[in-house]
């Protein structure tokens, strides 16, 4: 079952990674922004999986913190790494677009600031896990949970402070020619995310089994 899931995600991601660029290059140019608008096909799906990763990490952390679920912890660390990875994509593609559209690499806009801070929280999560020493897993789980709960607050506070980012409602107003490449990109990036997540989880599971085997041998030798 797991292999079928893995294989289908791999196929969708592979087909999408070949096919989407063709669709994207065939899509009509946006009237005002021209070519630079095409970055949107990468930027929006990356942002979506970044938030998906953060959500999964928080969910896994809750299971780990309150029920001691090791599976939850594995899900949390795998999705935290992907959140940081796709966050890098978001934070690179965003400013490239902004330079052209707003004339500045960075603006203290609500979505930008919230994404940046969310990304920072998960960088801190990975830091805590790697360099935190004993007890760091609990600490990191607490951070993920606090971070996920904090994101709406950051959003609200910055949006009162200032906002200029295009609204998510642009998705609904997409021209007919842009819809297909957009949803193809969404599907591709999501499949890629799920594929990487499953591979990373498999690695964590293998690591857990190795630890168990190690302990069993030690018990045996004693």
């Amino acid at each position: 079952m797991r292999n079928v899931y893995l294989a289908s995600m791999a196929v969708i991601a592979a087909v999408g990674l070949v096919g989407s660029p063709l669709l994207i290059s065939g899509a009509p140019l946006e009237a005002q922004m021209g070519f630079i608008q095409k970055i949107f096909y990468f930027h929006v799906p990356s942002a979506w999986v970044m938030f998906l990763g953060a959500f999964l990490c928080a969910g896994g952390s809750i299971a780990y913190l309150f029920r001691g679920s090791e599976r939850g912890d594995r899900l949390a660390v795998a999705s935290a790494e992907l959140t940081v990875l796709f966050g890098v994509c978001v934070l690179i593609t965003g400013p490239i677009w902004a330079r052209k559209a707003w004339g500045a690499w960075w603006q203290w806009d609500v979505r930008l600031t919230t994404s940046l801070l969310l990304w920072l929280v998960f960088v801190a999560y990975l830091f805590a896990r790697r360099y935190g020493g004993p007890g760091a897993r609990k600490l990191a789980a607490g951070l993920a949970l606090f971070g996920a709960a904090d994101v709406p607050l950051i959003y609200i506070s910055v949006s009162i402070w200032r906002t200029i980012h295009p609204k998510t409602t642009v998705v609904k107003t997409l021209g007919a020619g842009m819809r297909a490449p957009f949803w193809a990109s969404m599907l591709t990036i999501t499949a890629l995310f799920l594929l990487l997540l499953e591979l990373r989880l498999a690695l964590e599971r293998a690591r857990a089994r190795l630890d168990e085997a190690h302990l069993a041998v030690e018990d045996h030798l004693e």
Binding site: A128, G132, L153, I154, S157, W161
Partner: peptide, 29 residues
Amino acid sequence: LFGASLGRARSRDVLLPLLTYPLVVPILI
């Protein structure tokens, strides 16, 4: 919360601000 749970962590001095600052941004604003 994080200060107490960093009790035995290595590189505590770096981790505390790293964990705290992004979370307290709403307060700072």
